[in-house]
Every structure is written in C-alpha cells, then in structure tokens.
Design a protein around this nucleic acid. Sequence first.
DNA 1: GCCAACGTTGGC
DNA 2: GCCAACGTTGGC
Length: 139
Amino acid sequence: MNYWLVKSEPETYSWERFVREGTAVWDGVRNYQARNNLKKMKRGDLVLFYHSVQEPSVVGIAKVTREFYKDPTTKDSRWVAVQLEPVKPLNSPVSLSVIKSRKEFQNMALVQQSRLSVMPVTPLEFERIIACGGMTAAS
DNA sequence: GCCAACGTTGGC
DNA sequence: GCCAACGTTGGC
C-alpha cells in the first residue's frame, strides 16, 4: 500500500464537507507532477487530507476508492481524477508549523515543495503524522 | 495583504 | 530554445 497527501483550501472544499458528502471526486488538478501522483494511486491507498491557507494542517485520513480516470471537468485528456472517501478525522489536527519544526518531516514534499497539491508520503511519515494527531495505524 | 516560489504562455 | 511576462498557490 502507498500513502499520499492531498491539499484542499477549506474555503473551496473542506474536510467537513467531504465527510458530509461521504465521497469526493478529486478533479481539477492541472499540474503534471500532481497528476502523475494521482495516476499512481491504487484503490485502498491511504491519503492524508490537508487544509491549506487558513490554519494549514493535516486534518484527516481518506482512502482511494477509484483509481484514475479522465477528469470530468475538462475535455483535455491529459488530466485525470480519482475518487476518495473519508476514513476518519485525526483526533487533533497536525499543523504545518509542527511538521516544519520536526526533523523527521524535513524531507516531506509538504515542507520542500509548498505548491505541490498531490504528493507521496512514506509509510513512516504517514505513521508519524497520524501519531502526532493522536492516532495509530491500527485505530 | 504581501510576496516568494514556481508553472505556463508566447514573442522572438 | 530562451526568457520575460504573467498567473497561481499558499505560507506568513
């Protein structure tokens, strides 16, 4: 299994709305690097859901329920979408400032490449992030 | 609100 | 193919 992180501005699409709706088509990505990451997602992969801009932080865990297909929001066949479902919120959000302050997270794309919106996360990083959020892999 | 980083566009 | 101009993202 692989692990990922996706960003969303809560004003545009929040974790709360994601939970309310129970599913999300992750479309509208118009960056090649982010798109390439979408294409690598497999059903069942776990995804950290990150709120950008206001109180930037990882707020929840999602999973991939449909692998990539043509982005329905454009005729341009270069772009793809995946489908995600919420798994559970973190007990406490893990803020970007905390992530930036810890040595073990310095290699994350979240820290190094602030504008990338879909990125891989290593299994260890995933485990440590959710641990910071008061969760364990088993829970 | 500002601005750094960075991706894209288009003129040459 | 280079690069200036411009637009967008997202941290602060």
